[in-house]
Amino acid sequence: MTAALKITGLTFAYPDGREALHGVDLTLAPGERVALLGPNGAGKTTLVLHLNGILHGGAGRVEISGLPVTPGDRKAITEIRRRVGVVFQDPDDQLFMPTVAEDVAFGPANLGVRGDELDHRVTEALTAVGMLEHRDQIPHHLSFGQRRRVAVATVLAMRPEILVLDEPSSNLDPASRRELAEIIMSLPVTVLMVTHDLPYALELCPRSVILDAGRIVADAPTGELLADGDRMAAHRLELPFGFDPSAIHRR
């Protein structure tokens, strides 16, 4: 079976010489949900921006369902950006159109989807995140949790094969956090979730990898990884006070 995501030997350095990725290898099977953990500055965001060809220029290779990310090839890059849906950390960076529906339509419209099909995509995506009744509202009038859900919908409307979520639970109140978890679990896509929220990773992702100093330094079932206190401490990962991963029964 073709891997949903296959990264081999990826390196990258920023123009100022700072090295951000140091030879990353990572493979995700279709339908897998994987958490990408790591301290600040580990290169997580840099890695995410490589998945859809926004950053490139170093060594190594990224493949999405067998299609290599080739930044020079406009057509291939459009297809890559359809396959990889990135939900950025701050929904305000993602939402910029005057209404929720138009924002959700932006992605598929860039892919050339028009008319009834476009409408259908918008409805489908908003239904998936439970925001259909807000379709004509102004994004900035929604609550933060609602905006994050719309941000997820803007990406779902492109019918991605991989959903990449950057800190999906940050700034969410507990109820919004749970609602978003339910939405993510209900989606039939491969998920790569960048997060500092370890309980959230445990709840949503059977597998976790740790990125530190530009390398994947651990790759294991999430419960096992979180229970390995020494390894966690070595990479500046800390569980919330009183949280015991072994006490949680995975659903």
Binding site: P15, G17, I54, L55, H56, G57, P71
Partner: peptide
């Protein structure tokens, strides 16, 4: 002074 090694696209 800076030789851009990486490109952003």
């Amino acid at each position: 002074p800076i030789r851009a090694k990486a490109a952003v696209a």
